[in-house]
Design a protein around this nucleic acid. Structure first.
Lengths: 74, 74
DNA sequence: AAGGAATGTTAAATTTCCTTGACATAGAGT
DNA sequence: ACTCTATGTCAAGGAAATTTAACATTCCTT
């Protein structure tokens, strides 16, 4: 399975937020720029704490940053 | 870090959900009962994917399961 | 053309999450 | 008392997230 059930809008939020760079976002949430890049590209799922910190920086709800496709019914 | 800014209501949700056991919840989200116990006790912050799966099981929003105390706000 | 800033990417090392397996306690039911 | 279920907890190990460091490309500015 290994579905791609997790997606995010970090990149969009960054550009809507005064062109914030990956490095600056990383600095504000306490991770490196490489980690931000990996998260944006969906290479792995961040910890819940990191996810909350990102939403916090942009001042939006967590679900506005990360979307989960609840593959319940099918 | 050690900031315990993350709390959760998994235990309450379990009991409001027909007394679901830790083992059953773990089975449904694909982790062991020990992991569920550790998450309930806030021993570590789960991955975002695990968090979403838990919310999915209870049919609630992620924020109803995990609460984040944003630093800046008083 | 040269330089800097932002990003992509990769490898090795470290930290944290999670598993497996075990032993312990408390409560409910027989 | 005995058993069964649910939970707590711990240690060793594996898996995944994250770090650090390096080298690459593209774009912008000079």
């Amino acid at each position: 399975m290994a579905d791609r059930r997790l997606s995010n809008t970090v990149r969009t939020l960054r550009f809507h937020s005064g062109e914030m760079t990956q490095a600056e976002l990383g600095e504000r949430i306490g991770v490196t720029r490489q980690t931000v890049a990996a998260i944006e590209q969906g290479k792995y799922s961040p910890t819940l704490e990191t996810a909350f910190r990102i939403a916090d920086v942009f001042g939006v709800a967590l679900e506005e940053v990360f979307q989960w496709q609840s593959s319940g019914a099918s």
